[in-house]
């Protein structure tokens, strides 16, 4: 019998503080907003990119181009997944040549999503630089990929799951760690 055990890693206030710090770090990394483009990875990455963009805009007073990227068609395991994943919209704001693209995602784990995102972005143009910004780094990398900006680092094991909830889609902000609890089966 398996019953999941759920604990909060970041509550709404902690998540808000993390995002504010991440917005500042994005600005420092990109040295302002001139060439900055924020691209969120479907699903929750899009909302997080939107939040960071708003925070950056509030601080700098200039609009930041933002986009959405669905990496499903670039996955390396499409062959093996059961029902085909639903594909979300992809929208890239203008030409990426010469830009500093910051990819935003909710959780960095194996690194395979980021690998797919890099391949997909390359088909849209040749940015000057691509950086990676994630709310949660949960370790467990299977590819040589690291984030430039991290909201929080959490040690997890493969059976566990990190759920990022955002108000826009889930009603409230929270990051939770879901642990399967194994209880002995009745004899």
């Amino acid at each position: 019998m398996t019953r999941p055990d759920r604990s909060t890693i970041l509550d709404a206030r902690a998540m808000s503080r993390a995002l504010q710090r991440m917005a500042v770090e994005v600005l420092e990394l990109a040295r302002g907003t001139d060439d900055l483009v924020l691209i969120g990875i479907q699903r929750r990455g899009v909302e997080l990119a939107q939040r960071i963009a708003k925070l950056v805009e509030a601080q700098e007073g200039t609009a930041v181009p933002r986009g959405a990227l669905d990496i499903t068609l670039y996955r390396d395991d499409l062959e093996t997944v059961g029902p085909k994943p639903v594909i979300g919209p992809t929208h890239i704001p203008g030409d990426l040549a010469g830009k500093h693209v910051v990819i935003v995602d909710d959780v960095l784990y194996t690194g395979r999503t980021v690998r797919a995102a890099l391949d997909e972005l390359a088909d849209f143009g040749r940015p000057q630089r691509i950086s990676l910004c994630v709310l949660i780094d949960r370790g467990g990398r299977e590819l040589p990929i690291q984030a430039d900006i991290v909201g929080a680092t959490v040690k997890t094991s493969p059976g566990e799951r990190v759920d990022v909830l955002v108000e826009e889609l889930d009603g409230h902000d929270e990051v939770a760690l879901i642990r399967p609890v194994h209880t002995a089966a009745a004899p």
Partner: peptide
């Protein structure tokens, strides 16, 4: 029909090709 929606955008890309 729903799956066709995101594929419309693929044909508008500079490189009209995905590796699926």
């Amino acid at each position: 029909l729903d799956t066709a929606e995101p594929f419309k955008e693929v044909s508008e890309r500079p490189i009209k090709k995905v590796p699926a």
